[in-house]
Each structure stands twice: as C-alpha cells, then as structure tokens.
Design a protein around this nucleic acid. Structure first.
Lengths: 341, 341
DNA sequence: CTCAATTCTTTACGCGCGTAAATATTTTAT
DNA sequence: ATAAAATATTTACGCGCGTAAAGAATTGAG
C-alpha cells in the first residue's frame, strides 16, 4: 500500500508506464492483454489498490455487471437462505448482486422494480410476491430487463421459471403419511399469498383420491405474511371446533405448521408419531427453522442448492445470449423425517 | 405515459421548454425552483416517466445518496428484522439503502466493505460480526466513510455506537427469574461470535452477587453462527452430565435457548413455569421466532424500533454535518413473559 | 534475421450530468 | 410603473471511463 492516492485510471496507468486504454482493456478482461502487461498491472494493483470508478464505468458500458435479487420477504429465513445461495452464485460468476425484499407488500415490490431499472442490471432473479403482485408491472419490467422468475410463478413471464415441484412435494409427503398412519387432512390458508399453495392443495386432493381416502381441507382465515400467527390462531380455532377429521395434519407450509404446533402446545395436545401422542403434524418447505421446533417438524424440503443453481445458471446463460424459449423447471423435494409425523 | 423514449435530461428539458441546468436543479432539490417551474416539470415527469441516469449523477456529485446497511447474518431473522427497519428509515429520509450480509464470515465482511467503498456511500450502518471481525479493516473503513456501528460494538470506531443495554437486559431478566423461582444458571457459548455475550455473562454474575446466590455459568463448545445447533448439542451434553445446578436456565440469547428447548424435548424434559414442568428456560433478544417455540419463550426483547431509529438518525445527522464526539447509546429492553419461564 | 501477427500507444470523441459564470427574464416590493 | 431581488437561460467545462482508428512497438515463426 503506497501513500499516493490515485485519482483515476490515467494516473494509475501513468504510474506503471502503460497507456490508459490498455489498463481499461485489462479491467474489462484481464486475459485480453499480454501476460507480461497483465502481471505489471496486477503488481501495481496490489501496491496501490486502485479501483475504477464504478459510476464512470457503468455510464459508458451498455450493460452493467449488476444483478438484482428480489424476494418477497427477507425476514422469512427460507427466502433469506435462498437469496444467500443466489448471491454467492452471482459473485462466483463475476456479477455484482444486490438484494431486495418486498417486505410482503406489492407497493414495495413495484418500487423495487423501479429502482432496479435505474441500476441498469444485466439481469434480475425475481421471486414474486404471488397473488398480490402487480401483474402488469411485473410483465412490463420483464419486457425491459432480462428477468428469471423463481420460487413462485406468475403466468409465463420473464426468461423462464425455476422452482420446486409442488405436486411432487405434496404427493410424496402425503404418500408417506398415508403409509405410516391415518391419512392426513390438509391445513392451509384460505387466501394464501403464495400461489404454490394451490398446487399443493390440488396435489393433496389427487393423492387422497388415488389412495381412496376421503380428503378434508381446512382453510383458515388470515391475510399477509405473518404465517405462524395465522397458523396458530387458525389452529386454535380448528382445534376448538374439533375440525380435524383424522389425527394427521399436513400443513401447506412449514410456517403454518410452526403456528399449528404452538396452538397444539397451548391446548395441551401432544404432537408426534409415537403412541403417547394425539396427533401428527407435517409441514412443507424444509424451512431452516423446522429442525428446531418441538417436536422437530417432519417436512419435505426444497432442494435449495439445485433451485438456486438452476435459476442462476439459466439467467447467466440468457445474459450471455443463449436465449431459449420460455420454460418452467420444477425440482423435486426431499422428505425429511423427524418426530412430528 | 407517452411513447417517446427520453434519452437524457437535455431531451427531457427540451420537451417542456426548460433549460437543462434548471431541470438538474429541480432533481437535486425540487424546492430550489419556482413553484410554477416545478409544477411544469412534475407534470412532464408524470407523463414521460424520465429518470436521471444514476451513474452520471453519482459520478458528478461529491457524495451520493447511497447508504450501506451491513449485518453479520441476514438468515438470522433478528438481523433481517432490524435491517428491514433501518432500510425503511433510510428510504423515508431520502436515501438509497443497499443491504449486505457478511454471512457469518470475516472475509465476506471485508469484501463487503471493499465493495461499499466503490458505491461512494453517504454513510454506512454497520453491525460488525464481532470477535471475528478484522478490526483494522473496520477501522480503516470508518476513517474513510461515515459509519455508524450498531448492535455490537468494536472499540470506539465510527461515528458512534447504538445498540442495546446488555447489562440491563440480563439484570432485568435475572431479577425476574430470581423473584419467581429458583435463581438461574447461565447457559452460553464458550467463544461467542457476538461480544454482547460477555456483557450478558458479567451482568448475570453481578445480579447473582447482588441477590446473594451462587452463580453458575455453563459455557458450551461450538464455533460460528449455527447457534440453535450449538445450543441443542451443548444442551444435550449438559443435560446428560446433569450440569445444571438449578431448575432455571437463562440463555445468553434466544437462538441458544431455542436449541436448548429442542434438546429438552429430545430428552423428554418438560419446560415451563407451571408445577408439571421440570425446568424453566429463558432467552434474550426477543427473536422474531421466540413467540412460536414450544413452550413460547420468555425473553427480554430489543427495542427494535428505538435502536434502528437512534442508529439511523445519528447517521443522518452526521451526514448533514452535525459531527458530535463519539458516544455509545444503549437502549433498554422489555421483558416478554411467556410460558417457558 | 525477416516478416507477419499480435499487442500496445496515441489521439480523439462521447456518455449524461453537475456546476459555475454571465446574461436575460421574471417576480416582488416600493 | 420602476427598481431591486429572485430565478432562468446560455454557455462552457469537467468528471472518469469506454471505445474506435491509426500507427508504433513487440512478439513468434520460419
């Protein structure tokens, strides 16, 4: 580290006796200059710690190296985890990711997309809010910016969709529950924010029909993203009404299940799969917290790694010009057996 | 929305018959132009939806309106929640916040600070990793960029520190536990990532001395940020060794408590404050998830709103030139009584 | 050592906007 | 209405870098 402060690329280039355009070329692609020149620049770089002015660079490039990552709710560790995964993949691929959370509200989501335009990103990885999303705003944005939709699909917009196979999720865990005890009833929000919920309900109904059992769907009230609380209150209500027709409850997602577990605790109902327990509860998502509920939650988990990998590489391919027709990729989940069911 | 695409401020200004410098002035401060002019610009703005090129603007301004928000681990809902809070305050104050997570690793933290320099932010709100942080890198960064440290303090660097009063936290909840049952022992990580843990231990020791009880600190092994798992494994170990001298366990933080609850569940130990329970468990932090553990966790909660408000306004004041000598602000927490203790 | 291919230097322009100075126009007070 | 104050316009330069074109220097093959 030298003490001289370098103001711009001109000064930096002068310091090593190389012309500015060559240095500029180096920063755009280190391999585009002769190895000897590259070594000289890199040596000087280590000494003087100069970095090109981001704003000047991006003003003159047609496309930046920015990538936006947008999730509905970063406070939900599920989204935080998948965002972390995506972020790392962007960095590894040489992009500059920026994280955004819609905090559960459509107005925020639209605002984020507005701000994102200003960043002139090379691409965007977007997990829409779902039902509440402003369809037109999303569509318009996708027209302007290469956008890959993940987690929950909204029509056939963007470059492609990557997410989990919700039919497989629910089919698989329903199958497990049926084979190991009473067939499950299905516990869900009446108006879920996330459209995956509909697929899961349908898959549950299909599974019950396949097995020849009577299906029962308990749809509880509640709006928004405070899902544990909705599950708890809805659970208390359903328990009070003795609404569950079997001793096995498959929840539409883990956060709902977590709320239901709390409701069961409050009512003194023992949850688990051994003989001393009254009911079994299972979730879906493989939420980071599901391991630490009491009892630990049996669930079917997203393949976080595979989803984020598929999403990121599809976006990068599109940025690099490999434009393929829109398609939907849905990855299978893995059953995680724990004590709750 | 008109169909004509406006390329730059020149074109936009020409379209309404106003000079570019005046429009530029407007964007820097709408009140700096005559109301009539302002109205004309705003009308055109609504029609044509032009926005100044961010990169050109920031290249020419001495200081941007960017604010960096850096937390150790965004997957932890505690940090996600406080980040959300800070983010909103930045937006309300007219800044452009950008969120960063160190993902628990010092190298990421240093890398974030490097990238942050490139953004030429007006200021940064930084919650350091703590023990693992690269002190020198932080200090150097704070010398260059107006930085407010929050959550966990590292020496007296930056503009100021804003966080919670960990002494008050532990004193308060220890007091509650002592008055309502057996005095607590203290469950903590031997080498906690977060320096607040040391204050909490000391405060516990002080409280026990004040009450004239024997203190007992159980320090468990484990490195890193998988705190629930560390608490679970450490808890199982301690339970197996019958290491707890009293029936009341005060955990250094909520995540540790959540892990301990899981350990208790695995060992068939009933946690709670009624007569049928074997032990009481309390946490500290008011973690978003603590409401939904089984039993719901008694804890002492950060005043999220007050902390983020104090942090944000201190930073904004400093940016506006109100430079005050370094000081530490520590806000009190509020006891949240639930079923676990 | 020679020649062609590669890489570098020089020169020059443009990106979109901030900003300053001088001038012209409006607004407000008298 | 008139002068003074406030605000706009015109003109011009600079920010730091991308990028293109032409010529100079370096490299590697024969």
């Amino acid at each position: 580290m030298a003490k001289v402060k370098i103001r711009n690329m001109e000064e930096f280039a002068g310091l090593i006796g190389i012309s500015r355009p060559t240095v500029s070329k180096f920063f755009n692609d280190p391999d585009s200059v002769r190895p000897k020149t590259r070594a000289k620049i890199e040596a000087a770089l280590a000494q003087h710690n100069y970095r090109p002015n981001m704003y000047a660079v991006n003003q003159n490039r047609k496309l930046t190296k920015n990538v936006g990552i947008v999730v509905p709710l970063l406070v939900d560790p599920y989204f935080a985890e998948i965002a972390r995964n995506l972020e790392q993949r962007c960095i590894d691929a040489g992009y500059r990711p920026t994280l955004f959370s819609a905090h559960g509200t459509p107005s925020h989501e639209v605002e984020i997309l507005e701000n994102l335009r200003a960043l002139k990103p090379a691409g965007v990885l977007l997990a829409p809010l779902g039902r509440a999303s402003d369809r037109k705003a999303l569509e318009k944005f996708c027209d302007d910016v290469p956008t890959l939709i993940f987690d929950s699909s909204v029509d056939e917009i963007g470059l492609a969709f990557v997410g989990s196979d919700n039919f497989q999720f629910t089919a698989h865990i329903s199958d497990y529950l049926c084979r190991t005890g009473e067939p499950p009833c299905f516990f869900e929000m009446k108006t879920p924010a996330n459209p995956n919920a509909h697929r899961r309900r349908q898959s549950y109904l299909n599974a019950m029909e396949k097995f020849g059992y009577d299906a029962q769907v308990i749809s509880i009230d509640g709006e928004g993203w405070e899902i544990e609380e909705i599950g708890r209150v809805g659970g208390l209500d359903a328990l009070a009404k003795d609404a569950f027709s079997t001793n096995t409850i498959l929840c539409s997602n883990d956060r709902l299940a977590i709320g239901l577990l709390t409701a069961c605790y409050e009512r003194g109902i023992k949850v688990g799969r051994d003989a001393t327990c009254t009911i079994r509860v299972a979730g879906q998502d493989g939420h980071p917290h599901s391991r630490y509920t009491c009892p630990p939650l049996t669930t079917i988990s997203h393949d976080y790694d595979a989803v984020s990998k598929a999403a990121a590489s599809a976006l990068f391919a599109a940025i690099d010009g490999d434009i393929e027709p829109w398609k939907s990729t849905r990855l299978e989940g893995k059953l995680i057996l724990r004590d709750s069911a």
